[in-house]
Design a protein around this nucleic acid. Structure first.
Lengths: 149, 149
DNA sequence: TTGCTCCTCACGTCACGTGAGGTGGC
DNA sequence: TTGCTCCTCACGTCACGTGAGGTGGC
């Protein structure tokens, strides 16, 4: 962790690490998905490791599950809960507060798992059909090849 | 197969069966992904079963793999080759032509399989991480629960 | 003939992309 | 001080959504 990291990551580095553009980050902030990054007005945005983790998670849900930004807002609560978990775990929270955070996060993670599994089932089905198609094509190739050869 | 099916399917039925809107179908036609449906100018579009199969395939590639319409154009050749396969197999083609169609389709199907498998690998990884997260949350819940109970 | 579905513009929207012109930080 | 990266508009684009007003087919 460099001295720069101590002050926070700049938007360009965050974008690169998350595999998005700076425009995307600013747009997500605009839409309330990332929260206003730490900064004095008009100055450069600065991000923490937790912010990056949150963004990476959003991008994954977007790309792998095809969720809209509106959909992501729902799951953003998970990220927020877990960001709070990471950031404030050792700090101000009481055990009751910590338990509440954990118990709020569990059903959201479970929902994510269900969505991912539904996607996997569809992809498995698609993969199976493609393999069948390929086998059929190879059969026909063999038939025609022997006839014309 | 009804009498209506003999004359061809209308755009509304095609849209419903493919899980898209009529606007999407017209837009794909506009962008050259579906070919101009059989019809006299300005009249109603009519589609065949092969047209529907092709559209369903495009929608799947779009939704499950997140491909842009520009990406889909590349794979559209696959669909065209296989549509030709289905439509013209018993008709005018010679064995040489049939073999050429089959051998052109094979590498495209193989590319689709690769893309689907890459997606599956990413989803599997994501699923694994989510399960780990859930397990961690359950552990913390147990720790905090016993302390506060 | 009456509905229902279809037709073609054409403007709106979502999720950014892409400069234009200007300012901040190592 | 010089670059490089950042900043805020603001218009453009992709993939459609959504009416407006009109016509075709069972």
């Amino acid at each position: 962790v460099s001295a720069a990291a101590e002050r926070g990551y700049r938007i360009g580095e965050v974008a690169e690490r998350a595999g998005v553009t700076t425009r995307t980050i600013r747009y997500y902030e605009e839409r309330g998905l990332l929260g206003t990054a730490d900064r004095s007005k008009g100055a450069h945005r600065l991000y923490t490791e937790a912010d990056i983790g949150r963004l990476v998670e959003l991008v994954r849900l977007r790309d792998l599950l095809g969720l809209s930004l509106e959909d992501l807002v729902d799951f953003a609560d998970t990220g927020q809960a877990r960001a709070a978990l990471r950031d404030q775990w050792a700090e101000s929270a009481s055990d009751e507060e910590r338990l509440a955070i954990v118990e709020a996060a569990i059903p959201l993670v479970e929902r994510q798992i269900e969505l991912v599994n539904a996607r996997r089932a569809k992809l498995d089905e698609f993969a199976g059909e493609l393999e069948t198609k390929l086998a059929t094509l190879h059969e026909r190739q063999a038939e025609l090849g022997t006839e014309t050869a």
